[in-house]
Every structure is written in structure tokens, then in C-alpha cells.
Design a protein around this nucleic acid. Sequence first.
DNA 1: GCCATGGCTAGTA
DNA 2: GCCATGGCTAGTA
Length: 123
Amino acid sequence: MRKSSDRNLFYDNENASQNTIKDTDVYDLLLKIPAGKVSTYGDLAKALGNPLASRQVGRILGRNPNPIKVPCHRVVMSDGKVGGYFYGSDRKKELLEKEGISFTDESVNNFMEIRIQADELVI
DNA sequence: GCCATGGCTAGTA
DNA sequence: GCCATGGCTAGTA
């Protein structure tokens, strides 16, 4: 649905905003992030053709189907902060640290180096 | 309305 | 910190 604030968009692609994101697409993409790397909610959204839908991606990960098979913990915020996790962000950090990622405070170290961006995720 | 986000702006140090 | 985004969900009628 188009809103009055849409005039603020940089791009004006009629198709972009009617592309709803499917849970299964998100989970498929997650499998492309190897241990030791991270991606962001926005990158996933962008890779799925809906760059503004980062928040939906978060919600989809939130009602996590299968925390064991699906590496939700490898998705962080666009500024390198940990972001949310069903079992709490401390648990999320632990999992990432186990994969070789370190933090200062709530932020991933060497974010630029280990981040997988949207174009690397596109199928 | 809510939300596991994002990005921009003001304004501090 | 503020506000825009977009789709889902709870819960009313």
C-alpha cells in the first residue's frame, strides 16, 4: 500500500513495495552465511528485492522455526550492533564468539571485513 | 498497534 | 533520538 510519505523514497519502483517477503526465502538466504561471517537485516531484505523491509526480516527471524538448523544468530544490525535474539542477545554473542567473531561492547569487531552484503546473497 | 531495523539530524565534547 | 517503513497479530464487533 502506498503512503503519502512515499514521496521521500529515493527510488520509485512500483514493484518494490508490493513484494512481500516469504519466511522460507529468508531461511534459505540464511544458509548462505558461513560461520565466522555475519549479514544484516537490511541486506537480507535487499537481497530479496524489498530494501525497506528490514524490519519484517527481523520479525520473521523472531518467530524462529528452528533455531538449531537456521543460523539466525548471524544476522546483526546495519551499524554492527548485535541486535535481538530469541534467547537474548548475550546468547547470540556467545554463539558468534564460538564461530570466531569478537565484540567490543555490543558491536561486532571488524564488521566491514566479515559482513556479507546483499549482492553476495542474491540467488 | 506492534516490531530481533535503518538512516539522518541535531547538538555535545 | 526520532521517525519512516511494511506486514502481521491480537482482539473488537
